[in-house]
Amino acid sequence: MIIYAIAFYLFAAVAVASGTMVVAARNPVHSVLFLILAFFNAAALFVLMGAEFLAMVLIIVYVGAVAVLFLFVVMMLDINFAELRQGFMRYLPVGALIGLVLLAELILIGGTWVFSPDAEIAISDKFYMSGEVTNAHALGLVLYTKYAYLFQTAGLVLLVAMIGAIVLTFRSRPGVRRQKISAQVGRRVEDSVELRKVKSREGV
């Protein structure tokens, strides 16, 4: 149990620290790298809670895709971050004050936290938390039944995201030659290759 606690506080502390560094780091590339570190620690926390599927998904999706995309964007865009940060010092006192107040309040709340006695009753589906089935199995069982509504709606959100991305960025410029996959796939040997007998030393 003590090992569990040590591991939890270790991962949690590293996660918070790297979160702070994401904001504080001067170099944006460093920020993204700290972000990846924070993700890893969060995944570790998931593992500690027995949610290994979520931990893996977090690493694959957030570290593997999102963070790498961030990295690319940050490295490819020519943004003068030093200039952007100029205002930072000006707002730091007020910002820090607000942040500290909020932090203090949240700590205060955490100290007085209680769970409602009814919460135990309200939490249904203890079956899936009992560890009798694997994580992924359990998720699958609820995702397509109890949470089908949310699952489908999330699908719609993704559809809209796709439409939105296309609407905002896709444009057909004149004079740009585009790949026509169907034409490529539909090409046959006869259409593009002409076999000729070339007599030797005569040329075509």
Partner: peptide
Amino acid sequence: GFAGTTRFDTLFEVLSSSEV
């Protein structure tokens, strides 16, 4: 975290009947 549910009707019950 307090009520253990996200459903509105259950939330209402939990919040209005909470003894603590």
